[in-house]
Write a protein that binds this DNA or RNA. Structure first.
Length: 488
RNA sequence: GGCGCUAUCGUCUAGGGGUUAGGACGGAAGAUUCUCAAUCUUCAAACCCGGGUUCGAUUCCCGGUAGCGCUACCA
């Protein structure tokens, strides 16, 4: 294989904010394609917009990328390659394919009802001698591409997703290559780098589809063969609008998913299903299976909605239900050891003191009851808090019962549990026998105990819970509950 | 306004000239059960509109409509 035919893709975020979920998906698709074809992934920070770039944003993007745990091979910063961009722009100018525009950038917005702006005639037609003279005199100018509009020319390219694309050159404005401060524009910098870094496939958001005609023009002017293009349908909010932090809040940031307790594999799986499918009804797809099924041709063309609720009542509602469901599937699939480790980190970060062995016992009891890792804090709190938060004593009263029955049950439980064998089977035997002795249904027996030890009616199975909690805590909490029913 | 792209259940999607239009999430009901989950079963739920082409269009073509994108010396 010759060097020229090697597959090389790039992910080129501009550091003007956190890692956006749409950017993350673009990165994932690039990764998938590279992995699938044995290609190389280039990470390029497109940081030519000096005013908007922040170091904080660079950190946040790397944070998100590290969490996804997908690798890349080469790394560049556009801001360190400005000489290359200018050199290539200059070469295009020398060929007569670009010209200097001395008219200062448009201040307000133009009136679009009169059609699009295409170029300043007097600037496009300025003689080279005059142009050189004004430039030498120090007059600022932007360098504009001279879009071929003399004869009816159509610019064409084939998109791996959207198919044959064509646009008349007469509909393309003479876009800028260099700003008047000498900085390259996005179009110039991007194409120059794509050429220099020998990018073979550009996989990016569909918002660049119409820009691609300009890019084809630049590639040709620079004497380079345009790479292959694949544009991805956009990810949009439930209202159909492009996802934006200002409008939709933290749901558009990758780190929000991380912090809420998504597993990166689940998040990746979810994102892949937005605009792509393996076409065989599979949805729970570990990464290696996605790699095997992935192809650019299977990508959809319509935008996909991330279905989160705008004013989210619960943290869970803030996310697309399918993402949450997939996450629960990945949690179920995780070995208990591994899940336990991850949950422990969250519990400890929340300020609770808990040892590994105990977390390892708790994990199987809650793994089917949590959808996000952080749910451990609400689903298993009673295992690691010393004092149960106050609960409504009325919850202690079982179905078809009253306070007197609750008291009777709890006192009996107290008596039985003082000497019961604290294992699943031992507890079941003692408690069922106690229920029978009292002449109450098992449910009527278990409910007051459950509430007494967990503070709520919905909790993991009782015998396992008591076994993990231990005799001491169990009895103390039952005593407390007995006092509560008495005081009513 | 110009140009480009898109259109199947609420959402993500499969399919494709003749189908009971398939799956998943979510919703509803039921089974199971010590509660809650998990799991299983069942149900409701869609081809944007109008013309053509055709024996037959949801599928192909054209038009409309709607949505999105680009239209910066932002990326």
């Amino acid at each position: 294989m010759t060097a020229g035919s090697a597959i090389r893709v790039r992910f080129a975020p501009s550091p003007t904010g956190f890692l956006h979920v749409g950017s993350a998906r673009t990165f994932i698709f690039n990764w998938l394609f590279a992995r699938r074809t044995g290609g190389t992934i280039v990470l390029r920070l497109d940081d030519t917009d000096v005013e908007r770039n922040t170091g904080e944003s660079v950190e946040s993007i790397f944070d998100g990328l590290r969490w996804l745990a997908l690798d890349w091979q080469e790394e560049y910063k556009q801001s360190e390659r400005l000489a290359l961009h200018r050199q290539m722009a200059q070469a295009i100018f020398e060929k007569g394919l670009a010209y200097r525009d001395f008219i200062p950038g448009a201040a307000g917005e133009r009136d679009r009802s009169e059609g699009p702006w295409l170029f300043h005639r007097e600037m496009r037609e300025l003689s080279r001698a005059e142009s050189d003279r004004r430039a030498a005199a120090g007059e600022p100018f932007a360098l504009r591409f001279r879009v071929p509009r003399e004869r009816e020319e159509t610019i064409r390219f084939t998109d791996a997703v959207y198919g044959e694309q064509a646009k008349s050159a007469s509909d393309i404005e003479d876009f800028a290559l260099l700003r008047s401060d000498g900085m390259p524009t996005y179009h110039m910098a991007s194409c120059a780098d794509d050429i220099d870094l020998r990018i073979s496939h550009i996989i990016r958001g569909q918002d660049h589809l119409s820009n691609t005609f300009k890019h084809v023009l630049i590639f040709r002017a620079a004497g380079a063969e345009p790479p292959r293009f694949a544009h991805l349908p956009l990810l949009v909010a439930p209202d159909g609008a492009k996802l934006s932090k200002r409008k939709h809040g933290p749901v558009v940031s990758v780190t929000t998913y991380r912090d809420a307790g998504f597993l990166p594999q689940a998040f990746i799986n979810f994102l892949c299903l937005l605009g792509w499918s393996p076409k065989d009804d599979r949805e729970f797809l570990p990464l290696d299976e996605i790699v095997r099924a992935f192809s650019l041709e299977n990508i959809n063309r319509a935008n996909a909605v991330i279905n989160f609720k705008e004013p989210a009542a619960t943290p869970e509602e803030a996310f697309d239900p399918k993402a949450v469901w997939l996450n629960s599937q990945y949690i179920h699939a995780l070995p208990v050891e591994e899940l336990s480790k991850q949950l422990l980190a969250i519990v400890r970060a929340a300020g609770h003191d808990l040892d590994e062995a105990r977390m390892r016992q708790i994990t199987p009891l809650i793994r089917e009851r949590i959808k996000l890792l952080r749910d451990v804090l609400t689903a298993a709190d009673f295992f690691f808090v010393k004092e149960l938060p106050a609960y409504d004593p009325a919850l202690l009263i079982p179905q078809k019962g009253n306070a007197a029955l609750a008291r009777k049950v709890l006192e009996k439980a107290r008596e039985v549990l003082a000497k019961a064998d604290f294992t699943h089977d031992g507890l079941e035997k003692s408690l069922r026998a106690a229920a029978q002795e009292l002449g109450v249904k098992a449910g009527q027996m278990f409910t007051p105990i459950r509430v007494a030890v967990t503070g709520r009616t919905a909790a993991p199975p009782l015998f396992e819970t008591l076994a993990v909690l231990g005799r001491e805590t169990t009895l103390a909490r039952i005593d407390e509950a007995v006092r509560e029913v008495h005081s009513r």
